[in-house]
C-alpha cells in the first residue's frame, strides 16, 4: 500500500529514470565531449566551438534556420488567426476545420511524389502558372522556375510548412476564440464598437495566451520540415534550404562528432533561452 505522500515517486519514477538515462545524462556527456577532440579525447578547450563558428556550412545552416523560422512562423500564426476569425462566423466549421487539419495526417513519404510532380521544373505548377501568364500577357515569354534547384526552394518549403501546420494553428486559435466570453463581445457592440475595434480591443488581448502556445508548438514543428526537405531534395539540397537539420545529419554520417557536440550544446542553449523567454512572457498573462 502506498501512502499519499510517496505515491508520486511510484508514478513518476519510470518516466523520470528513462528521461535521465536516454536524454539528460547522455546530453551531459555531449557537453563534456564538446571540449575534447573526437578521436584522441584530449582536452582542447573552446577549439570545437571556434571551429563550428568558423565553418561556412554551419553559418549557412544557422542563417537559413533563422530565416525559415523568422519568416514562416509569423506568417503561419497570422494566417491561422485570419482563417479562425473567419471560421468563427460560419456554420460549417467542422468540415472546413477537418480539411485544414488533414495535411497533418498525411505521411510525408506519401506526398513526396506528388510534390515532385507539382514542383518539378516540368511539373504542373510551372505548366499552369505559365499558361496563366501567357493568357494574361501573350507577349511575355516566362521561363519555368526550377522550384527545387533555386532560391525558390526556400519559399516552397515555407509554403509546405504552412500547408501542413495551418490546421492545428486554427484549432488552437479557435479554442481561444471560443473561450472568450460572448457577453463581452456583445457589450462592446452595444457600446458602439465596430468590427475592427472589437478585434483589437476585445478579441486580440484575450488571445495573448493562445498566441504563446501557438508560437511554441509551431516552433516545435518547424524542425520537422526536414522530412519534406529531405524527401524532395535529398541530403544536399539547394543552399537556400540547407538547414541545421541537414548539417547535423551530414556531420553524423561523416562522424564529425566533435563538431556535432559543440553545435548541439550551442543549439541547446539557444533553445533553452528561447523557451524560458517565452515561458516568462507566457507567465505574464496570468498576472
Amino acid at each position: 500500500m502506498m501512502g499519499r505522500k510517496r505515491a508520486w515517486i511510484f508514478f513518476l519514477f519510470p518516466s523520470f529514470a528513462g528521461v535521465l538515462l536516454f536524454v539528460v545524462c547522455p546530453f551531459a556527456d555531449v557537453v563534456r565531449r564538446s571540449f575534447l577532440t573526437a578521436i584522441t579525447g584530449t582536452f582542447v578547450g573552446l577549439q570545437n566551438y571556434r571551429m563550428i563558428f568558423g565553418n561556412t556550412a554551419f553559418r549557412t545552416a544557422v542563417k537559413n534556420t533563422f530565416l525559415f523560422t523568422g519568416f514562416s512562423i509569423p506568417l503561419l500564426v497570422a494566417l491561422g488567426l485570419a482563417v479562425s476569425l473567419a471560421l468563427s462566423r460560419v456554420k460549417r466549421v467542422r468540415l472546413i476545420k477537418s480539411l485544414y487539419l488533414f495535411p497533418m495526417a498525411m505521411p510525408t513519404a506519401a506526398i513526396a511524389i506528388v510534390w515532385k510532380m507539382l514542383f518539378y521544373k516540368q511539373g504542373f505548377v510551372n505548366k499552369y502558372l505559365l499558361r496563366l501568364a501567357a493568357a494574361g500577357n501573350p507577349d511575355t515569354v516566362a521561363a519555368p522556375i526550377d522550384y527545387l534547384g533555386t532560391g525558390a526552394a526556400f519559399f516552397l518549403l515555407c509554403a509546405t510548412y504552412i500547408w501542413k501546420n495551418l490546421g492545428y494553428t486554427i484549432v488552437l486559435w479557435l479554442a481561444g476564440i471560443m473561450g472568450i466570453n460572448g457577453e463581452m463581445l456583445e457589450a462592446a457592440k452595444v457600446d458602439g464598437a465596430g468590427n475592427m475595434q472589437r478585434l483589437f480591443y476585445v478579441l486580440l488581448p484575450n488571445l495573448k495566451g493562445s498566441m504563446y502556445t501557438i508560437v511554441v508548438l509551431s516552433f516545435l514543428n518547424s524542425f520537422k520540415i526536414y522530412r519534406e526537405a529531405y524527401l524532395v531534395a535529398g541530403a544536399y539540397p539547394h543552399e537556400s534550404i540547407y538547414m541545421l537539420q541537414h548539417l547535423f545529419n551530414n556531420w553524423f554520417v561523416n562522424l564529425d562528432l566533435d563538431k556535432m557536440a559543440a553545435a548541439a550544446v550551442v543549439c541547446g542553449i539557444v533553445f533553452l533561452a528561447g523557451t524560458l523567454l517565452l515561458w516568462r512572457a507566457w507567465d505574464d498573462r496570468e498576472v
Binding site: L21, P26, F223, L257, A264, C267, G268
Partner: peptide, 16 residues
C-alpha cells in the same frame, strides 16, 4: 525536452 528537436539530441541518443 519536449521542445528540443531530434537533431540537437541526436548525438546524445547515439551515444547511449
Amino acid at each position: 525536452l519536449m521542445l528540443l528537436p531530434f537533431q540537437v539530441t541526436m548525438l546524445s541518443s547515439y551515444l547511449v
